Amino acid sequence: MEKITFDAMRNYILENELTDSVAISLHPDSFDELVMDYLDFNGNQIERPFEILGVEIRQDNTGNVVRSYIHTDSTLQ
């Protein structure tokens, strides 16, 4: 995915039928782009934890997720 936008992320979640059993990790640059697009869409309001359609969106701080790539993690123990 070239640029991760709010619409693209929402479509990705719907198309892949993701639920709250997963979380999405994004490269810090992709995370920042998504947050800025989300703020524009949602009137400069954001909740913590950051979720779209009930799926938590996280910033990767490990350096393992490349830019413009969506990485899913199971939240089940």
Rank of each mutant, 00 (worst) to 15 (best):
N44E: 03
I46G: 00
I13M: 08
K3R: 14
M9W: 11
T19P: 03
E56T: 08
E17L: 13
V66N: 12
D60W: 08
G63Q: 13
I13G: 10
M1C: 12
V35N: 00
D40H: 13
V22N: 06
R48W: 00
F41D: 06
F50L: 00
L14M: 10
F41T: 13
R10N: 14
V55F: 06
P49H: 00
S25I: 07
V22G: 09
I4W: 08
L53D: 11
M36F: 07
K3L: 11
I24A: 11
H27K: 11
E2V: 14
R10F: 06
V66E: 09
H71S: 04
S21N: 09
P28E: 10
G54I: 04
Y69N: 03
D40C: 08
E51D: 02
D29C: 07
A8F: 15
V35D: 00
T62P: 05
Q59P: 02
N64K: 07
E33A: 12
S30T: 14
R48I: 00
M9Y: 04
T19Q: 04
G54F: 06
D37M: 09
V66Y: 11
E15I: 05
D32T: 15
S74V: 05
M36K: 15
Y69C: 02
L39W: 03
T5Q: 10
E56N: 08
N42W: 01
D60K: 07
N11S: 15
D73P: 00
D40G: 06
G54N: 03
L18H: 05
T19M: 05
E56I: 11
E51S: 02
Q77N: 03
N42H: 09
R48Q: 00
I70C: 03
E15D: 09
D29A: 12
E33W: 12
S25K: 12
T62E: 13
H27W: 08
G63P: 08
F50I: 01
Q59T: 07
D37C: 09
Q59H: 03
T19F: 02
L39Q: 01
P49M: 01
D40S: 09
T62C: 05
I46A: 00
M9P: 07
N11Y: 08
I24M: 13
S21K: 11
T75M: 09
R58A: 05
E47L: 00
L34E: 11
E33Y: 14
V55S: 01
Y69I: 04
T72H: 02
D60S: 06
L53Y: 09
I52R: 02
K3E: 10
F6C: 04
F50P: 00
Y12W: 15
L53K: 12
Q77F: 04
M36Y: 11
V55T: 08
S68Y: 08
Q59K: 07
R67K: 13
V35G: 00
F31H: 15
V65K: 04
I52W: 03
F31C: 15
V22C: 13
I70Q: 04
L76F: 03
S21I: 07
S74W: 03
D37F: 05
F50C: 00
A23V: 13
E2R: 14
S25Q: 12
D32I: 14
D60R: 06
Y38G: 01
D32C: 06
F31L: 14
A8T: 15
L53M: 10
R10H: 13
V66G: 12
S30G: 13
N11P: 04
